[in-house]
């Protein structure tokens, strides 16, 4: 498995949580999480190293540096029905980058990755071949990909195959 190359690199470990809850809990969370939570579907919000990715109408993926403890968030959510589950180790992240990043992903991702249809800041769960991924465009020429850890070799080998092509 090529861990770093011109077209992809592994991203460092991160703290991750899946936040789910009703409207009250999510608006409280939006106030407590530094960059807030996107109310628009399929959009990420971030400030510094803290990010919140919209995955579903009641579901966000929160990203933070390792060992980050979201104390303010927990306090804001106390007493409100919600679910905050640590998934730091469930998934890993890599970045597909370079001018052909969208083309590389298009080998196995069925979405329209043209910048007009998948702009910077857009994020969504989708598929890459037979793996489930979260795809997040962080720059015009870079996608952040989250994948469950056991699917990582499959994803990177599939990418390597496309690079050959």
């Amino acid at each position: 498995m090529a861990e770093t190359s011109l077209y992809m690199r592994m991203l460092p470990p991160m703290s991750r949580w899946i936040l789910q809850g009703g409207a009250d809990a999510l608006s409280a969370a939006a106030r407590a999480w530094p960059a807030g939570l996107s109310s628009e579907a399929c959009r990420a919000r971030g400030q510094g190293e803290l990010h919140a990715l919209w995955l579903g109408p009641e579901e966000f993926l929160l990203l933070a540096p390792p060992d980050h403890e979201p104390r303010a968030l927990r306090e804001a959510l106390a007493g409100m029905p919600h679910s905050l589950v640590d998934v730091s180790h469930r998934q890993v992240a890599f970045e597909v980058c370079g001018p052909d990043c969208a083309l590389l992903l298009s080998a196995a991702c069925p979405l329209d990755l043209d910048a007009a249809h998948f702009p910077v800041g857009m994020c969504t769960r989708t598929v890459f071949g037979k793996a489930d991924i979260v795809l997040w465009r962080t720059r015009a020429d870079a996608f952040h990909v989250e994948v469950w850890r056991s699917f990582l070799p499959y994803c990177t080998e599939l990418l390597a195959e496309q690079v050959q092509n």
């Binding site: 789910q20 009703g22 679910s83 589950v85 640590d86 998934v87 180790h89 469930r90």
Partner: peptide, 12 residues
């Protein structure tokens, strides 16, 4: 019901 589900298969 106020309840939410998260897969943690690969967390542990």
């Amino acid at each position: 019901l106020a309840v939410w589900l998260t897969s943690t298969t690969e967390q542990w």
